[in-house]
Design a protein around this nucleic acid. Structure first.
Lengths: 214, 214
DNA sequence: ACACGCGTGTTACTAACGGTAACGTTACTG
DNA sequence: CAGTAACGTTACCGTTAGTAACACGCGTGT
């Protein structure tokens, strides 16, 4: 009896939690990362304290919300990186998957990149060096793992793979962010340019006349 | 007289402005980007409204503060990118200069990367796609210019250079951020690994046994 | 029937923040 | 000495995150 009751309650709580998360999702999609707890509670048809009972604080809610989208995006990226094709094709597919995602849902993307902003309670310690969005860290780590698993990089391969994982993710992120703001070219062109960069065209390019090149 | 008066006043105002900025600098260095206007005013020995008279709003103060550091860092980077050496050496010097800067002053670095956080007044429009720190944008644009000036990239070189500029800066940033948090290796190793990545080692690396490589 | 918990929800509050209006005070100028 | 203009303050507003205290519904043990 005790057990069945507990599972019953837990189910109910989980369902409520999902409902709240979906409401929060709608608000964040509408108002951006600045969405207030009041607004989210109102959208869910309830009031603040319930949110706090479920998620502890704003960081908790945002973490839960971010995890959903992060999981979804990472799933897509894994599919792209694991596709049956050559290395270059898969790199391009991965880049394109990421860029398509941020293009399709820029608000969600922005939320994922700046989840914990606006925290003004306490927070004196302000983790230096850990300010990046969890999404970036997770993508970096996952990519590092893929690289280390599949590429033969000689000695020190593990560290090299991690550096590359985070570096490539950062490249993708920064270029995507800039591209999303200015739209200077098509997505396909952007993908090609980035892949060219990773393929060493920077080193291979010839100097322009007048002094040594970059 | 009018002119002398004006210059006199302007000088005084500029001096005061510099004092306020230095006070703000100290507070940001101590409390991180969450530093409150009250705290900054107190550090400067004055009260809030004076800050607002000088800088308009928090964004204005932070922009002014960020510009100083950004200018300083960009100066160092320009020196590194313009040094008389080969391309690879200069790329490594540029990376190392950036990493040394963020290593030396992580609080300042974190502030520069997240300057406008915590804004809670209005701000409904939340510029999608322009959320990146101004420092990143400026570095990306400057690097793009250098690349476009000195490298012979064939047709479409301008767009390619811009993509690469922002991409490389993002790579540097993300890798640096991760490195600063975990310190998995020395700065020199990180620089070498990133330069290797830019030099096409990702494309050149051999597959590990078992299926096609990444 | 009745009290007891327990989960769910509310109202009403605190403390802190960004920002501003209204009021002194100093000092320079006619 | 009157006017004015910058410098500075106190006291306030509206909004935010977060919390305490109270109220309702509901199954349970005695």
């Amino acid at each position: 009896m005790d057990t069945t009751q507990r599972t019953e309650q837990q189910r109910s709580a989980d369902r409520r939690r999902r409902e709240l998360l979906e409401a929060a999702d709608r608000v964040v999609l509408r108002d951006g990362p600045q969405a207030s707890m009041n607004a989210i509670a109102a959208e869910a048809g309830i009031t603040k304290p319930i949110l706090y009972r479920h998620f502890g604080d704003k960081g908790g809610l945002y973490a839960a919300l971010a995890q959903r989208h992060t999981d979804a995006l990472l799933g897509s990226l894994r599919a792209a990186v694991d596709a049956p094709a050559g290395r270059r094709e898969r790199v391009e597919a991965t880049l394109d998957t990421y860029l398509a995602a941020i293009e399709a849902r820029p608000q969600v993307y922005r939320f994922l990149m700046h989840p914990a902003e606006g925290s003004q309670g306490g927070d004196q310690g302000f983790d230096v060096g850990k300010h990046s969005a969890p999404l970036l860290r997770r993508m970096g780590e996952e990519l590092a793992q893929v690289i280390e698993e599949r590429l033969d990089l000689g000695p020190g391969s593990q560290q090299l793979a991690r550096v590359w994982g985070h570096g490539i993710v950062g490249m993708m992120h920064a270029a995507g962010d800039w591209w999303l703001g200015e739209r200077p070219c098509s997505r396909a062109e952007l993908v090609r340019s980035l892949a060219d960069l990773l393929w060493g065209r920077l080193a291979a390019a010839g100097d322009k006349m007048g002094g040594p090149g970059f």
